[in-house]
Design a protein around this nucleic acid. Structure first.
Lengths: 231, 231
DNA sequence: GGCTTGAGTTGATATTTATCACTATATTAG
DNA sequence: CTAATATAGTGATAAATATCAACTCAAGCC
């Protein structure tokens, strides 16, 4: 399914990027009428690092993984995008190129908004520009802390942190389906997939989590927070 | 030495942040007249993570290290700041707090500019806002690549990359004084100081660099680039 | 159904990296 | 000048982590 997105105005979309609130209704209407919508099935690539940032992408439903491509095809999953998350990245104002790749983890429907339009609002609308700055700043900060975690915490600490992030920020629940494979969980927490298995098993044995079939449930959140904090 | 910086206008300062070119002459004059200047000797802290971002800081001379504070007092040096580098960080638009610390490596003289003034120019001056976005975007990108390097390269690769960054981007010369101690070089390349020593020695033995007293000279840049690229 | 494929899992092993203990060499303070 | 302190350097060891080689199990396919 794809096409011009003329059905609902972005202004009334419950999943819109918060910063769109700073647009005038004329700007909102213009943007809304010029956007494109497209669907992706789980596993499909929404955009790849290296491709031009011709559009800003927003999910209206589904979840996608955002990852950096390293050496030898190794990946680092920076985080998961949900509706309301601006998918454009810092390359937009540097070399007009994406520097991370985005792949749908579930079936996804996405809105594509012309980047030149976004950039023109940045120039015309100071509040919108400030909102964009806030967005990119917050994402930078998260990268800082991800970097500290990867560089200084040991595997159990990183896994605990990763599970807490999935529970608290992505799924908003202490019980969640394994939207990420063990391989991906490893790319998310910076370890080999074999070690993901071992550490999850360890957490199970200690009663910190339980893995019912393919669902992970956090049983002892305090302990998990302790492990995360102590590295 | 410190005080109001009324001697030279920022507009004619050869070390000014490039984005200041986008200010009107009235804005430039206002900013120039309200700024404060201060000096730091090598080793002194310019600001600490956690402190409020009340001012944007620019060096007019000297070099400073920018680092994240991790666990157990461990540090990650993100990079070195020279004149022309905006020292404010992404916390400014998130929680008005610095998230990295900055310490002078050489004697430094610095200009402090009221952050509210900067923020007001972001709102009044779209070109300035765009320049700010570009600045923060570029810094984000660098963090991406630093992160990949730390997560996926092995020690020799990280050291090679670090030396190349010092030569090509900081000192603009293949021979440079050891402004960073072995400890700091370790914080910069993500390894223990003992391993810094061992790898530098290894590089010496292979004729890739030479350490004359306390100066590092890159002898075989191609080889260094190869080591950096191959992880 | 039987076959293939890929994810999950496990144990053994190799590699990488940190830590520890110590010496040497500076550099600074008194 | 000398003691004290920080940095540099070295080797041995321990810890952390990746890699390799199986094996299991389930899903999809001819």
């Amino acid at each position: 399914m794809f096409g011009k997105g003329t059905d609902v105005c972005c202004g009334s979309c419950p999943h819109a990027w918060p910063n769109f609130k700073n647009l005038t209704s004329a700007e909102m209407k213009e943007m809304s009428e010029s956007r494109f919508q497209s669907s992706f099935t789980a596993g499909e690539t929404i955009f790849k690092a290296g491709s031009p940032t011709s559009s800003a992408v927003f999910l209206s439903s589904g979840i996608a993984k955002i990852y950096l491509e390293g050496f030898d095809g190794k990946k680092i999953i920076l985080g998961l995008a949900k509706p309301g998350y601006l998918l454009a990245g810092p390359g937009n104002y540097v070399d007009s190129t994406h520097h991370y790749s985005v792949v749908a983890l579930t079936d996804v429907s996405a809105c594509f908004i012309d980047m030149n339009l976004i950039k023109s609002y940045v120039q015309k609308n100071p509040l919108f520009a400030e909102g964009y700055l806030k967005d990119i700043s917050l994402k930078s900060l998260r990268i800082f802390y991800k970097m500290i975690s990867l560089a200084q915490k040991k595997m159990p600490g990183r896994m605990a942190e990763g599970l807490l992030e999935l529970a608290d920020e992505v799924f908003k629940s202490d019980e969640f389906a394994p939207i990420l494979s063990r391989q991906e969980l490893g790319e998310f927490t910076g370890m080999a997939k074999e070690n993901v298995v071992r550490i999850l098993k360890e957490f199970c044995n200690e009663g910190i989590i339980s893995t019912n079939g393919s669902t992970i449930t956090i049983m002892d959140k305090q302990k998990l927070q302790l492990i995360s904090a102590n590295g």
